[in-house]
Design a protein around this nucleic acid. Structure first.
Lengths: 204, 204
DNA sequence: GTCTATAAAGGGATAGAC
DNA sequence: GTCTATCCCTTTATAGAC
């Protein structure tokens, strides 16, 4: 029992370090030695736990995707009115991104480098079709509360406005000469701005 | 003279190949051999022209950035009314991205991997402050034609809506089960949608 | 300028002791 | 489980002939 605790602890430590390094440097940029060092072990032990770099990377990627997936679907399925839900979605999503600011670049890189690994996202596609958000969206259109725009554009706009700032952070920080704190507080302003934009656009 | 033409031709060919490979695979993912093969030469000749992989990469990155910079500033300095300019900007920018769809990911990756190399963008910062677009933006606010929002958010929203679709293309293609053609035609729809969103948001 | 051959470095992976 | 030492393949870079 105490032995197993120790195993789990080391494994957890490796995963934490691997996550940090892979998020930051990507598959090709990451060094097994850096991961090991970060976890205060050596590369031999890394291979003992995960055999290969590729396997370790896949574990990190799978975790990231399924985590992402769960949280998105949870937000999309909240029991709320449409407008309220858009606001809630943005609020929670930006908070999530603030805690995991490297995640978007990591996922985007992986999926552009290796589009075949996208199968796991495809599953979300099916679940998305049955999501409460989509149903509500269509109902609002039928009721004439919002304009009949394509759900594709709705979702894409919503995510663009939420995610892109994190991806382009270095550019905008330098363009507008912002400190880390200033940038974060501007991001927080977006919790109100984004729903405003989206809802104004959807209203007649 | 004829000698110099030959040099330039090989060099140009190398740069073209390097661009293709670096855009696609990034600094760490790119192989000098792949670049050489793509240019129908061998790696020795690559090194003859550019000494190291790093130097070749930097050349490609610099070109990309200054190209990007020129085009953005040119668009921002067009002699047009504000509303018209927003529409024109989106129209041209999306066309530009359709022709260079790998560019955003390349730049974003580089700048997140190596934020110190951002100095070249900083120059744009200064020029941006004197840009016609910013002046017009402030005038429109003073005239009461648009709401007094932060120019940071205006620019960020505009770029988010234009650029993010290209970055998240694999995700949305799979999420909505789209062919290449379907995706492109949805992108083209955005030439009208984005100015609509931005202008509706800015109007009282 | 361009090539072939090869050196040198880098980094993932394993053997074997503890 | 964990470490040290080391292997070995991949990839960058150079030497030297043409």
């Amino acid at each position: 029992m105490s032995e197993e605790v120790k195993i789990t602890t080391t494994e957890a430590k490796i995963l934490e370090s691997a996550k940090k390094v892979f998020y930051l440097r990507g598959l090709k940029g990451a060094r097994m030695e850096e991961i090991a060092k970060e976890a205060n072990i050596n590369t031999a032990l890394l291979h003992y736990y995960f055999r290969t770099k590729e396997k370790l990377y896949l574990k990190i990627f799978d975790d990231a995707i399924s985590n992402f997936k769960v949280q998105i679907l949870e937000l999309a399925n909240q029991d709320m009115q449409f407008e309220e839900k858009v606001k809630h979605f943005v609020e929670k999503y930006i908070s999530l991104l603030l805690e995991n600011s490297y995640l978007p670049i990591f996922i985007i890189n992986e999926l552009n480098q290796n589009p075949d690994r996208i199968i796991e996202i495809l599953n979300v596609g099916d679940e998305l079709r049955e999501t409460l958000l989509l149903r509500q969206f269509n109902e609002e259109i039928l009721k004439g509360n919002i304009r009949p725009v394509n759900f594709f554009h709705f979702l894409l706009n919503l995510l663009s406005l939420c995610v892109f700032p994190f991806i382009s952070k270095p550019i905008f920080k330098s363009l507008f000469n912002l400190s880390e704190e200033q940038f974060t507080s501007l991001i927080l302003e977006r919790k109100n701005i984004i729903p405003d934009i989206i809802l104004k656009w959807l209203k007649n």
